[in-house]
Simulated assay, not measured.
Amino acid sequence: MFRSLIIIVGLLFSFNAMAEKVATLSVQQALLTSKAAGAFREKLKAELSGEQKQLADLEAQAKKIQEAIKKGQGTQSNEVQDQQRVQFQKAFGEYQRLGQELQQKQRQREDEFLKQMQPKLDAVIRSLIDSEGYDMVVNKQATIYVKPELDITARVVELLDKQ
């Protein structure tokens, strides 16, 4: 009985210690839906468009060689088929190399963007916490359920876009 009383009193104290004003925030969503992110995506797309075209051309070239190999099976000499296989391997290898370089360049630029945006995002979140008096802001991805009105992601995006 005494033990039960201690547990109940402990629960009452823990409820009193709980945060009064709570919100959820998806930091990733806030960053990705901001105007700055949209402008960054457009700029990156334009910046990498030449390499994207080159990659598409290499893919088309490799497919064309591969089709020629398939069509020529049984009708072409082994020497011609071997030459085509070498051409295909060369084109496909170049396609893979360029694709990996392009992905790496894109990841690097995205990382730079995120590093650039992090201080702005932190300032917006801190300002919102101070002005709205939040006791706790929880990562939205860490919640199982939350009422939509507790989600401040859209508000963070709005403030981020004003900067």
Rank of each mutant, 00 (worst) to 15 (best):
E112M: 10
L121R: 12
E94K: 11
L32M: 13
K71G: 07
I8S: 07
I125S: 09
G50A: 12
F113M: 09
K105R: 15
F40P: 01
E94R: 11
F88H: 06
Q108M: 07
L32I: 05
M1H: 08
K63G: 09
M1I: 08
E94I: 02
G99D: 08
A60D: 11
E132T: 06
A91T: 02
I65N: 04
D122F: 12
A23V: 01
I8V: 13
G72Q: 05
E42F: 07
I7W: 10
D82T: 12
K71Q: 13
K90C: 00
Q100I: 01
K147C: 00
L159C: 03
D161Y: 09
R107S: 14
E94F: 02
Y145I: 05
G10S: 11
Q84T: 01
L31Y: 04
T75L: 10
P148R: 12
V80F: 06
Q141W: 00
K162Y: 04
K90Y: 08
S4D: 11
A91K: 01
Q141V: 05
G74M: 09
I144F: 15
Q73E: 15
Y145L: 10
L32K: 08
Q104G: 11
L150K: 12
S127T: 12
F2P: 00
Q103T: 11
E79Y: 05
N16R: 12
E67N: 13
V86L: 12
D111S: 14
G99T: 05
D57K: 14
M117E: 14
R155Y: 01
L128S: 03
Q100F: 04
L32T: 10
M1K: 10
R109H: 07
V156S: 04
F15Q: 09
Q116T: 12
Q103A: 14
R155C: 00
L11R: 01
L44D: 06
F92W: 14
K43Q: 13
M1D: 07
K45R: 14
V138Y: 03
A19L: 03
L128N: 03
K43C: 00
S131E: 12
